[in-house]
């Protein structure tokens, strides 16, 4: 989709071409919706943990700037995603009310908004914090908007497996903002989110299969069926639990984190097992897994923040 062909494509979709010439009815709230605030809140939280557990010191104002840039960069990639995916968003009940398919924001406006915020967030992070974190943020935006949205999402059932990397980068960016370097610990945080993503999204896809099929998105349940997806969910959860526990035996986290990761990991496994074993209707088990997976990730990172980061943050602010 390009700006030049936008009018023709809208006409093909049966949208009113005259609307393009009308003054915009988009409110500030519509532009905020383009930033995907709920996704952004998880990105900010995981980036905060990466920033807080990193060794070294960072002035609180610089830390705030880093988080602001990461949040805006994540929002920008969400706007670019909504610009490109407006056609399939319009076909899915979950996304049909988004600003672009609902007609409140024109596709070109969403594109311009996303590109502007992308450039601003990366440049400001590079100028005010450091170059490595800015480069990682730029790569994250590129990965989500181009690799995932434009390429993988419509072409392979492994879309969210590979595309999940985009959501896993924020703690690495937070770490890089403090240290200006990389090490095993932020890569481990990356791995937790990366492996967490497939069972999380496949649980959702299992009870939204018809939506994805209508939009022509080759999600695993659409392409390979329910049984294969359930098996994949269990396999990825089996992989996720030890990776989630790993920071404890590797000495990056205390026994509190170890206990939390073991207990929540066991619940994840139990829910994934229920999804695997459940006969129709599978929806309730999937909803349970989807909801708990969010809590699982939040708890792991929250305990890490309290365990490793909280003391460090207070010390930095006091210094």
């Amino acid at each position: 989709m390009s700006l030049i062909s936008e009018g023709a494509e809208l006409r093909d979709q049966g949208l009113d071409i005259q609307a393009l010439a009308q003054p915009s009815l988009a409110s500030a709230g519509d532009y905020i919706a383009l930033l995907k605030p709920r996704v952004m809140s998880l990105v900010v939280f995981t980036a905060l943990v990466g920033l807080a557990v990193a060794p070294g010191s960072l002035h609180p104002v610089t830390a705030f700037t880093a988080l602001l840039c990461i949040a805006v960069g994540a929002g920008a990639s969400g706007a670019l995603n909504m610009w490109y995916d407006a056609d399939i968003d319009a076909k899915m009940t979950r996304t049909a009310r988004r600003p672009v398919p609902a007609g409140r924001v024109q596709p070109g406006e969403a594109l311009a908004f996303g590109l502007t915020l992308s450039v601003f967030s990366v440049v400001i992070l590079g100028l005010l914090v450091n170059v490595l974190s800015a480069a990682l943020l730029a790569f994250t935006i590129f990965f989500y908007a181009v690799v995932y949205t434009m390429w993988l999402k419509r072409s392979t059932p492994q879309n969210i497996v590979i595309g999940g990397a985009a959501g896993a980068f924020p703690p690495m960016i937070g770490w890089a903002a403090v240290t200006g370097s990389m090490s095993l610990e932020p890569i481990l945080l990356f791995a937790i989110i990366f492996i967490w993503t497939p069972p999380h999204f496949w649980a959702l896809a299992l009870y939204k299969t018809e939506d994805y099929a209508r939009a022509g998105i080759p999600m695993l349940p659409v392409v390979a069926g329910e049984v294969v997806t359930r098996r994949h969910i269990l396999l990825y959860t089996l992989l996720l639990v030890p990776v989630g526990i790993a920071p404890w035996p590797l000495g990056f986290a205390s026994a509190l984190y170890g206990a939390t990761s073991v207990v929540t990991g066991a619940i994840m496994l139990l829910l994934a097992w229920q999804v695997f074993r459940e006969r129709r209707p599978v929806e309730r088990a999937c909803r349970n897994l989807f909801a708990f997976s969010i809590l699982y990730l939040f708890l792991l990172f929250a305990v890490l923040l309290v365990d490793r980061g909280w003391g460090g943050l207070i010390a930095r602010i006091a210094a």
Binding site: P23, S24, L25, A26, S27, A28, G29, Y31
Partner: peptide, 13 residues
Amino acid sequence: EAQKRARRSRSIA
């Protein structure tokens, strides 16, 4: 009026 309200909201943002 709706377009004016929307424009004002965008301008403030």
